[in-house]
Design a protein around this nucleic acid. Structure first.
Lengths: 183, 183
DNA sequence: CTATACTTTCAGTAATTACTGAAAATTCAA
DNA sequence: TTGAATTTTCAGTAATTACTGAAAGTATAG
């Protein structure tokens, strides 16, 4: 199978960007290929299109699976496994954010929690703990917020985002209403 | 210079996490060390504390500088350069988000823009472009929103975040007010 | 069962990235 | 200027990570 130049470029770009994220080139390219492919692809087709060894594709797919970024399906009269990227781009975005939180944020948060609770006699440790607490509180707040917002419907979220900094107007409005109603 | 066990653990953890992000262990550790250190440190002190070669520290500091995550200063009667992490954790967060956007998002966005504008005769390309447009629009929206929110005062932002999904209540309220006022 | 189609694992190797020490460059006091 | 203190660069090497082919594993049709 040969890709069109358009898909080629997309796939190659994703490969490069992949390395700026934590994921490697192979994984980036496989994902990109699935993302722009209308029909599901099997591992051999992927290996062929990207010129990777079959085993490399197998490992890449496993990695993508661990990120929950692929869907697996079977076609009638075909024993091979076929892969696609989830349709809904919002779902993809959520999944990605979720996985990154789990892998990159949560461990740090729990380390910080532990460190803050330790005894600290000397001034250095006192200062260090103060700094860690600042970091912890910020991360925790953003994380909690993220979890909440996560549950909103895409349309609601879209609406909120499109408002941008204008949400502050709503905040002011809220405060005024409170004053008026005497709350 | 020897670190306290508390700082040790923090620094080591950051080194490990560093590799889950795009940055390497050295850079992660240097940053962590600066972050929990009350007084500015010079490159030799860093090399000593972390047991890295002087040149490695030099490179790490350069990398951190390119992320705008260090501040440089001079002490009286001392020619050496002293480094600190910025005080304000919100500023750090912004800087980080900003840099990541520049390096990891913007290039993709412009690639997508180009790809979408290209001619597409065959159905594959048509589909690919549709998918790219979806991705482009989502990323663009989130980016624009981010840029807007970026400018808010930390306190305002905090307030918004603490509300979490309750902002939707405000949205509903707004809509009701519009109806009442006939807008 | 058995044969076949397909997938995964893994040891070895290739490629990439990180790190070091020596040398060059820079800065600044005298 | 000179030279001592400091920083940066860079070629070589070490360590890590990515990739491959062969072999083992798994599933299913007959």
């Amino acid at each position: 199978m040969n890709m069109t130049p358009l898909s080629q470029d997309f796939v190659l770009h994703f490969g490069e960007m992949g390395s700026r994220w934590g994921i490697n080139r192979t994984v980036g390219q496989i994902y990109a290929l699935l993302y722009v492919s209308e029909r599901p692809l099997n591992a051999d087709e992927i290996a062929d299109a990207l010129q990777f060894s079959r085993s490399n594709v197998s490992m890449g797919l496993k990695e993508l699976e661990s990120w929950r970024l692929t869907k697996l399906q079977h076609l009638p009269n075909d024993r091979r496994e076929y892969f696609t990227a989830p349709e809904d781009i919002w779902a993809i975005f959520r999944t990605l954010a979720d996985e990154r939180r789990k892998r990159e944020i949560d461990p740090t948060l729990s380390m910080l929690r532990d460190a803050i609770l330790r005894g600290a006699n000397n001034p250095e440790d006192k200062y260090a703990q103060k700094r860690m607490k600042e970091m912890h509180d910020l991360i925790e707040m953003v994380t909690l917020w993220f979890n909440e917002v996560h549950r909103l419907e895409p349309d609601t979220l879209k609406q909120l985002m499109k408002m941008g900094s204008k949400v502050t107007k709503l905040l002011e409005m809220k405060d005024k209403l409170k004053i008026v109603s005497g709350k």
